[in-house]
Amino acid sequence: MRKIWVIARKEWAEVFKNRFVLFTVIFMPLMMTALPLIILYTMGTPEEMAGFSAADMPASFADLCEGLSSETCGQYFIVSQFMLLFMLMPLAIPATFASYSIVGEKTTRTLEPVLATPVTTLELLAGKAVAAALPAIGATWLSFSVFSLGVAILTEGPGLLRQVTGPLWLFAIVVIGPLLAVAAVSIAIMVSSRANDPRVAEQISMLVILPLLGLFFAQISGLIFINETMILWMAIGVAVLDVGLLAFATQLFQREAILTRWK
């Protein structure tokens, strides 16, 4: 456990000196927090929402508005389109971070001295995973807190804030967020172990956001609406996926192949 922490600290010390990574970790959460707040500020005013009725909503969404005024329901409809962005963060940030982790060490020839130490493959990968996942989770939670604060400031009454910080989204951000981060990290480490070029590793790793992006567009186009059942199934699915991905990533990390095939 101690060595996992040693590796994670080293990763942070090194990676946070990389401006590109720093930019990703800071800029992405900033943008994804600001976007829904700006939209809420411009489109979710009482005047804009005045003529809005829950009956205008798709039936699957109207269920989520139970007990809300039509104005709050309208605001919630707008905001909920962007809530998935808070689940995109724990996918995208660690993918950038972790995709560099192995291939970066290959290119700088630092991996061989590390593998010569009595560190196990599991400790090494776990250290890199923790280093990639924790800042992403932290940034997501912080962004979500700022967003909630913004909602409290921009809206009248506790209706929308209660919806946004209700069990559905709280579970999504606090539980599914980290699970998604683990999935992203596992995939990025797998790609990074096999890739020879950091740029290629990063581009391939970023494909991990595609399923969630699909969900995002499906919701925007009104095909689906995230509800409790969906979130619960998503959590179970991602948790199962994580176990498989972690095991596979550890299997795929072949010390010998990495050392001898890398030129």
């Binding site: 101690r2 060595k3 040693v6 590796i7 080293k10 010390a13 090194e14 000196k17 990389n18 700088t108 020839r109 630092t110 991996l111 061989e112 001295p113 590390v114 130490t117 009595p118 560190v119």
Partner: peptide, 19 residues
Amino acid sequence: GLYARLSAERNLSFFAELY
């Protein structure tokens, strides 16, 4: 195979901890 962005001291302390 040194970590170019880390100081000499940090490079060594990292390996000392791993060992």
